[in-house]
Design a protein around this nucleic acid. Sequence first.
DNA 1: ATGAAAGCGCTAACAA
DNA 2: TTGTTAGCGCTTTCAT
Lengths: 338, 338
Amino acid sequence: MKKKVTLKQLAKELNLSISTVSKSLKNDPEISRKTIVRVRELAKFYNYKPNALAVSLKSSKTKTIGVLLPEILNNFFATALFGIQQEAAKEGYKIVTCFTNESYQKEVDYLETLTYSSVDGIILALSQETQIKNKVSHITELAQDNIPVVLFDRVSDTIQCDKVIIDDYDASKKAVSHLLDSGCKHILVISTIHELSVGKLRAEGAQKVVTAYTGATLSTIEVTQEDEGAKEITAFLKNHKVDGILGFDELSVALAIHIVNAIGKKIPEEIAIIGFSDSTLSRYSSPKITTISQHAEELGSMATALLLKRMNPDTSENTPNFTTKVVKTSLLKRASTR
Amino acid sequence: MKKKVTLKQLAKELNLSISTVSKSLKNDPEISRKTIVRVRELAKFYNYKPNALAVSLKSSKTKTIGVLLPEILNNFFATALFGIQQEAAKEGYKIVTCFTNESYQKEVDYLETLTYSSVDGIILALSQETQIKNKVSHITELAQDNIPVVLFDRVSDTIQCDKVIIDDYDASKKAVSHLLDSGCKHILVISTIHELSVGKLRAEGAQKVVTAYTGATLSTIEVTQEDEGAKEITAFLKNHKVDGILGFDELSVALAIHIVNAIGKKIPEEIAIIGFSDSTLSRYSSPKITTISQHAEELGSMATALLLKRMNPDTSENTPNFTTKVVKTSLLKRASTR
DNA sequence: ATGAAAGCGCTAACAA
DNA sequence: TTGTTAGCGCTTTCAT
């Protein structure tokens, strides 16, 4: 069994003191060239790596970021996570990830676990339950522990911190405008996220555009339970004229596609579909689904970059105020809209 | 700014020694009831939590599991990750996750990062490049560092460790049998994972069944580049009689669905489709796609359970030999097959 | 029943 | 140029 080599062992073998060895490995100029070379050679021979735990204990830095996501079985968050991990790795940071399953209590518990296992900072998208309850003291308290937080996508005005969001309101306007411009008169919005900040913004944006166009009707179906929602949508499509559907989230889009196909309506001739989720489903459906691209990976990497800057501030400048970065979405025109 | 409380501070405030405080918090019987109560009360008052770093340094345990995945934008691995995190959390373990993007070098690098930041164990699915090169010394060497590893899904015979896999060979037989039983005569297999262990096993299984049925033809298209693959599949379907398709992976299934729809063939009447991936695409396609369920979440949680057992062996028993758990897949019959 | 002291592996101020 | 020492926060053995 290969034991991990420590400074102590190197020092002993070289007949030097521990501190000399430590300094040599840092190329400290106060150590002689000759000694440095000797030390580094032996260190390389043994493949010495400093014990990260000891370094962390000493420095109170762990080079670890805590990531708290509402769910992972969701293209958006999975993609964001990917962006986070990639960006973190660039700077030598690791990520510890937990999933709250949209539960407030889990969010509280995991946050505690993360802070007490000493992550240097936290990236977080609020759980649905947290947004509904609007209880965020578990997050604001992090400031007292001096742990920087970056919120992304699911944010809260009550929390003072750096944030990265998309332009939900505008994106939704963009989507509805696209439908109307292509001749849709009767738009149906489907949402499973009406309780979320992003869902509300999207609803407002959609309504805004429709109101501006006289004569147009905006109906909304808020889905809470998948089966019931599916029935409701099916019934609605049978009993109302609908020629365009906007799905606010992955599940809504999936339901829309499935049901429109099931009742035998042609996409986009009879019903156009546009969605907020760029999942495999959207990309490989027939026709391919027009999508608002949320740039999830960029969202993740921007959140990480912000956090890294907050954790390692430029000594030259004074601490900048909290910013909210808004990532512009783009309309990925595909075949499900005219 | 709230500072984290330490034993030292508690001791000072209580006029006790650090060790007494430490023992009290552990309910050490050699400490008087009265003292224990006093200590615990003050600890609760300050919401004392032991510094995880210090504990880890002392105990050489971090309560952290390193997880190395080939990719995350993939329903299978995302689901497995979910299972891993859930199971780990049950025992108070955190997970540090990295994505190799199927790259050997990244796998090597991340593995080094993980081991030197002292994870207690590692859960890993080999990258594609690693399986092709069959270079696994970076993994076998972990044994020398006494870091237990559990491989899942993408495994290697060269590596001696606990493993969790699915019955790829049987699953594939099951899938092909299902197609043949329902009347398919000309089956096309599509695979983007022909270089992977799992892909090879699935290929063997499929071939086996077809060989057993005289007269049936098994054709295979191995897709390396998506666009070219799509063309190849399209051409093949035009020039050959195909009445059943088996997709070995998420992309293959997606391509199959998309192309069959695009060329206007009816599913399942003209072409039946069955796949190995239970993504949103499969579940919300019209018709819904018959799928081999890989029980990804269970795979993840089993891998974690195995690792936990290996890291915290029962003192009563002697160390068990390495095991390979095989998770039985099941056929999720849906509407894309007859 | 309580405390002193050593040590996990490292850094850094200070001494020599 | 090199070494000594103290200390990060905790556990644990061994006094008292």
